[in-house]
Design a protein around this nucleic acid. Structure first.
Lengths: 197, 197
DNA sequence: GTCTATACGACGATAGAC
DNA sequence: GTCTATCGTCGTATAGAC
């Protein structure tokens, strides 16, 4: 029913590799992780890894794009289930905080890794679709009058910048309590920063 | 009149090395820069580099601590020449913006590099003296009633987080105009976020 | 203090059997 | 599709002359 009749079923190697890679990259960084490490951690041999991915950078690239796609899906979901900029932006921060607590590695790799050093050909996170969607929310908030009219970049940065830095602080172990316990305070500050009244 | 009578005068090699290193690390990153690169760029031989520094990490470490010290000096200066939290914090942002425009490499290395990956033994930036001073300013602002009473970490992050992300955006080339042209808007947002009324 | 030449290890990537 | 064994390169660090 599928494509090739005789070849083996699609293996689960790639997902195992990506999962192990996320752990290793967030713990030790891209350059401190060897392909041997990935093979050991994932239980997949080097040969297989190179069969499924072009090279080490290809592994990182696949991982990166996977996570960007996932983020974009989450943001679209929020875009669709909320109508005001206020509700949308708050939901975004809540979502980011939640992922940070449940899957710190995902956030670590998305927001904290210096992709440009090992993925020179990928579009930087801040120019990626998810970040564009966040700016779009802010923009719409200006047209509805919820948010003061100003440079969209400035407004977006002020509205989300605090939360993003709270996330990195949490990942650095500087915050004793889970992010959810700071959410109300952060949101009060962030919204006051850009709202009209 | 100095210490050793016969040995050559203290060479300027170390400063040349650190200067070249800053350029290379910010352009290509720590791991993409070899000691050979540093030798070539600085005009100092490998042997000399290893004479002055323990190893490659030692070069990075010296650079890092130099810049931290410099930042601390700038912040102390601001602490002494301004009295209110309002004036101090605004001056800090102005200073950070100014350095970003005049010496982008300094900010790039301070705020954007993932030090933990190549300087595992150094204290992270966010726990360094300069960042502590910034939190101290915020703390004092709460006692004087300028800033709403809340978790100091939350307030500091909200007050400075937007500006710090503007800096990284600027370094990423996402902002067409120099940071100074956004300063007033950013400050309005940031201060509204934490101020009492 | 400065240099050149070299030793040595690690890692990315491939070959080729199963 | 998966594996093991191996190759070649590059980069850190040292030795030792000046």
């Amino acid at each position: 029913m599928r494509n090739a009749p005789d070849t083996k079923r699609n293996s689960k190697a790639p997902t195992q590799v990506l999962s192990a890679t996320l752990s290793l990259f967030t713990q030790k960084g891209y350059f401190n992780t060897s392909v041997h490490d990935i093979a050991r951690e994932s239980g997949v041999s080097i040969g297989s890894i190179y069969h499924h991915f072009k090279d080490k950078e290809g592994v990182a690239s696949a991982l990166y794009n996977n996570l960007i796609d996932r983020m974009e899906a989450e943001l679209s979901q929020i875009m669709n289930t909320h109508s005001s900029a206020h509700d949308r932006c708050r939901a975004v921060i809540e979502m980011l905080f939640s992922i940070t607590e449940k899957e710190p590695e995902v956030m670590e790799f998305m927001l904290y890794a210096k992709h440009s050093e090992f993925l020179p050909n990928e579009v930087p996170v801040c120019s990626s679709k998810p970040f564009e969607l966040m700016r779009e929310m802010v923009k719409q908030g200006m047209t509805t009058g919820e948010i003061r009219v100003m440079d969209v970049m400035v407004a977006s940065t002020c509205l989300f910048g605090g939360s993003i830095r709270m996330i990195t602080s949490r990942l650095d172990g500087l915050l004793p309590k889970p992010l959810s316990s700071y959410l109300d305070d952060i949101w009060t500050c962030s919204w006051r920063a850009v709202t009209a009244k």
